[in-house]
Design a binder for these strands. Sequence first.
DNA 1: AAGTGGTCTAGACCACGTG
DNA 2: ACGTGGTCTAGACCACTTT
Lengths: 240, 240
Amino acid sequence: MSRTDYPVYLQLRDRLWDWIEDEKLSSQQKLPSERELSERFSTTRVTIRQALSQLEAEGLIFRSNRRGWFVTPERLRYDPSRDIGFTRYVTEQGFRPRTETLFKQLTEAPKWLSEATGLPEGTPVYHIFRRRYVNERGLLVEHNYINPQHCPGLLSESTDLSIWQMFKEKYNRVPDHRDIEIYPLALKGLEADSLGVNQGTAGLYIQRLSHDQEGEFLELDREYWLHDALKISVHVGGRH
Amino acid sequence: MSRTDYPVYLQLRDRLWDWIEDEKLSSQQKLPSERELSERFSTTRVTIRQALSQLEAEGLIFRSNRRGWFVTPERLRYDPSRDIGFTRYVTEQGFRPRTETLFKQLTEAPKWLSEATGLPEGTPVYHIFRRRYVNERGLLVEHNYINPQHCPGLLSESTDLSIWQMFKEKYNRVPDHRDIEIYPLALKGLEADSLGVNQGTAGLYIQRLSHDQEGEFLELDREYWLHDALKISVHVGGRH
DNA sequence: AAGTGGTCTAGACCACGTG
DNA sequence: ACGTGGTCTAGACCACTTT
């Protein structure tokens, strides 16, 4: 160990986590209030909050709005290279999925979208904004930008289920190849508000750009996940 | 906007970032001291630190040990599904790579490694721990666990270059398929210390488990990246 | 030796969520 | 209405980096 001392907030982190395990607090259960914790551990609220933030960074606890601190559930496994729907892979892992459509609209492709997809600027595209839950905790929000050529009348459909299923069944379109981007970021603005987290909460960004066999743009998907919510798992190469 | 107020530290974040852009501070340049900043913006150090932490979470600035705050360089693009070496893809993007081997040793496979790879517990494996730099900023540390069957005498080789290149040229082994895991975590202990960052700094974990054509275990790679250092970019499906 | 970031105290007020 | 988490102040000491 190259550190010379072991600061109070890290000691508190350990004691706090031991305490949580002793109390057998389980997934989604609420911790006592910060004032109560700071008394129990004989320190100030500022320091207890440092310890709580440490556990939050490690993904062991999370906070919701001004409601308090909770024990983080197990991470969801997720393979962005496959196209089975959210509902299905959540269910397969024994969790309860839920999807809420926050808005859907027909807009004109802005510059960044045109650059990413090759569509001419101003082309009409569907834009769907959804929030996804697992066991009633909102884990991500998602922007879908969809080529309306391949699925006219989408706005009248229910978008609370898998878009891919609809693509396949109703419009007979299947994605052929994907460009995927992944990186950590801070959740801000609309995305933070929609997930009920503070500005600057750690998140993970996943973007999927899908084309069909003929190289035509099908869909662009921009997902904003809570940092502690998922574990990406991908298999590449070899036989499938 | 659903928020009713706009807290001081978020206003400071904006003003601070504007100031950085005005001053044309570039990649890796140092910000003034926290005390100087808190005077310049007429607030306390605690609040200025909140603003700085916000910019840190967004990946716009980073801190190094007790040395201060710096402007974050552009993210490195990285495709974990390909097996071109670090040195090559960093150079291709116009940056200067550097690799430092912190230790290498022959050990016996512990339980978790045996479970991940299928090797019997206690099998001898090479364990290499390296730190990788881009433009003299340490971006990640990496544990390599290598099947010694396929590359006897590895410890005598220099491991500051690509392991894959050595595999191919000297031992005629090529990875066939990979299982990749990716998730955000907090950098702690050895990993945090080796990168010179605080305990709990946001990071990204990337694990690659590689097998050859005959399904034999080649290598397990566990990478701990700074959260602001990379952008993962993968292409799947279609023809290559 | 001086200055820095990291840590910690002991308060305070406010907006919001929950009863 | 109350208690909560979120924010903010004005100090302080220490270990470490830099000069």
